[in-house]
């Protein structure tokens, strides 16, 4: 992507978004639902990679952010306008990430992975308990959800925004600081980066999108309970997609979210029983034999061309 300027990349993103925005009138319901899933995972994976890809942190907090956003919708559905709920969902996740980040971003590696996972679970169990004890419900029905087309456009907008943000961050000083932190955090500090501030800022920024996406998707699911929106697999799958795509890139996670959603759908239909076994096997093979992710294929191809 280095051949393109920031402006080119942003224009390309917006163009793609424009084309995709016409899909509700061109596609079958099934294809549209599939596209929606692709878009959601693309948004999640790109925003995950925005922070984790550059800094080499392994965050499993995506499910927590997603679920928080969804619950903002669930609790506010009757009082809040739809757009406002989505915005608030994103903001709630961003604020939560800033607080959590300030407390735990000094931890690295496995510790950080475990604690971010634990935080998600803590919030999930906390909400479950609260709902049971004080609201007397397990799940919530969203009574008057917007049209599917509206939700599709919201998710598309959020994902496009995530991509544009990731592009801008990468080209900015913040992006440089994050790459420095990923490479050698102490060295970055000796060159004047307030690493704590940079990490908290970027972590919080990257949490906005899963929060907002959770708020939007809750409208589509219409019935939500803590287990479905805080499902740890949302977090795992995001990490998986981003890393299989190549977490230090932006195009990689997008490509791999499309690939994953299609592959999952295909395998599910073809091999309803065997499909998760095959998925597991594929994942292992990918990590072992293509450790740089799909993006490294592109690099290799480009390298081959430039040598020819």
């Amino acid at each position: 992507m280095s051949r393109f300027t920031l402006r080119d990349s942003i224009l390309a993103t917006l163009l793609a978004a424009l084309v995709l925005s016409a899909m509700p009138w061109l596609m079958s319901d099934f294809a549209l639902a599939l596209t929606l899933t692709c878009l959601m995972y693309a948004g999640l994976a790109v925003s995950w990679a925005m922070f984790c890809g550059a800094t080499n942190y392994l965050s499993l907090a995506t499910a927590a952010f997603f679920g928080m956003g969804a619950y903002v919708t669930a609790w506010g559905a009757e009082t809040l306008a739809y757009g406002l709920a989505v915005l608030l969902g994103g903001l709630a996740a961003a604020v939560f990430a800033a607080l959590v980040g300030a407390a735990v971003l000094h931890l690295r590696g496995a510790y950080f992975a475990v604690i971010t996972f634990g935080l998600g679970e803590l919030v999930r169990h906390g909400i479950t308990y609260y709902e049971k004890a004080y609201a007397g419900t397990v799940g919530r029905v969203i009574s008057d959800p917007p049209e599917t087309v509206t939700i599709y456009h919201t998710v598309l907008l959020l994902t496009a925004l995530a991509v544009v943000t990731a592009l801008a961050v990468r080209a900015s000083r913040l992006g440089l600081a994050l790459r420095g932190i990923g490479s050698d955090e102490e060295r970055a500090r000796t060159l004047g980066v307030d690493t704590r501030r940079a990490k908290v800022l970027a972590f919080s920024l990257s949490a906005f999108f899963p929060g907002a996406l959770g708020a939007a998707m809750a409208m589509r699911w219409t019935y939500i309970d803590p287990l479905s929106v805080f499902n740890p697999f949302i977090g795992f799958q995001t990490v998986l997609i981003a890393m299989v795509g190549g977490a230090h890139t932006i195009l990689g996670p997008i490509a791999s979210s499309v690939l994953f959603s299609l592959l999952t759908e295909y395998l599910r239909l073809q091999f309803p029983y065997l499909f998760l076994v095959i998925l597991g096997l594929l994942l292992i093979l990918l990590v072992l034999y293509l450790p740089g992710g799909l993006a490294s294929l592109l690099d290799r191809w480009r390298w081959g061309k430039s040598r020819a």
């Binding site: 998760l276 597991g280 096997l281 594929l282 994942l283 292992i284 990590v287």
Partner: peptide, 13 residues
């Protein structure tokens, strides 16, 4: 971690 996920899918299913 990723390979672990793969094994998890594989073995559990």
């Amino acid at each position: 971690l990723l390979v672990g996920f793969g094994l998890l899918f594989l073995v559990q299913n």
